[in-house]
Amino acid sequence: MTPDQCLRAVAAMEASWKRDAQALVTLTRPVDGEAPLALVLAEFAERALQQLAAAHLDSRLAQEAGACEESLRNDPVLTATVLLATTYHCWSETAAEHDVLAAASLARCILIGLAGLTDVDPADERVEELIAWLRERALDGTWSEQQGRPDADAGRA
């Protein structure tokens, strides 16, 4: 996933959150062989969820030095992360290539899902802070390169 694809995904989540139909139409229209927006959103969500889950796991392992594998397998945050990523991918595969409504709904649900893994309430104006944090990560290559993990509090805007 390229940094441009990551920024496109974040822009779609922001446009969906702000209900900016014109921006969503523009972002949904692929340019020169770009992947459909729904697929870009699902891939971005998977990478972001992996990073947030890794930060959660790191903090959990630090708290439970000898945490057993069974405990981790039953961790509700890790389970939710896998379920969300799978749901987003399945949803993206059923969306028509230029379906603005499907992309907008998916973008909004991804943003709500990511907020759910932080202390940001989706009904809160702090969602803007989460969007800014996601944009920063897109610009620094966190999502595109799978390098570096946000620290345990990084997603807590």
Rank of each mutant, 00 (worst) to 15 (best):
T118V: 01
D140Q: 13
A67S: 06
T81M: 00
E69F: 15
G141W: 01
V25L: 06
A15H: 10
V82D: 03
E70S: 07
Q146A: 15
A54C: 04
R135L: 08
R73F: 10
S59N: 10
R47L: 07
I110G: 05
S92Y: 08
W17P: 05
A115I: 02
E129T: 06
T79H: 07
T142A: 15
E145S: 15
A123N: 07
C109W: 09
V10S: 10
E69K: 11
D32V: 12
V40W: 02
P122Q: 00
T94F: 12
A103L: 00
C68S: 12
L139G: 13
E128A: 14
L106T: 03
L27Y: 13
C68T: 10
R149F: 07
R137N: 11
V31N: 12
L39Y: 06
E46Y: 10
L49E: 00
G33K: 09
E97M: 02
L24A: 04
L111W: 10
A54Q: 06
R8P: 00
R137Y: 15
R126F: 01
D124M: 03
D20E: 11
A35D: 11
H89D: 08
T94G: 01
G155W: 03
S16E: 08
T118N: 02
D151L: 08
P36L: 01
D140A: 09
I131R: 02
P3K: 13
A54E: 04
A21Y: 15
K18H: 11
S105M: 03
T28W: 00
S92L: 10
L27S: 02
A115D: 00
Q147K: 12
Q51A: 14
R60Q: 05
E93F: 11
A104V: 03
T2G: 09
W91T: 03
V77G: 07
R149A: 04
L130I: 04
T86Q: 14
L111T: 05
I110A: 12
R73L: 10
L37I: 02
C109H: 12
W17Q: 14
E125R: 14
A23W: 06
L41N: 02
A104W: 09
A95F: 09
T118D: 00
F44S: 03
R108H: 13
A9D: 09
S16Y: 12
A107H: 06
L7Q: 11
S92V: 03
P76G: 14
E125I: 08
S71V: 06
L101Q: 15
L37M: 04
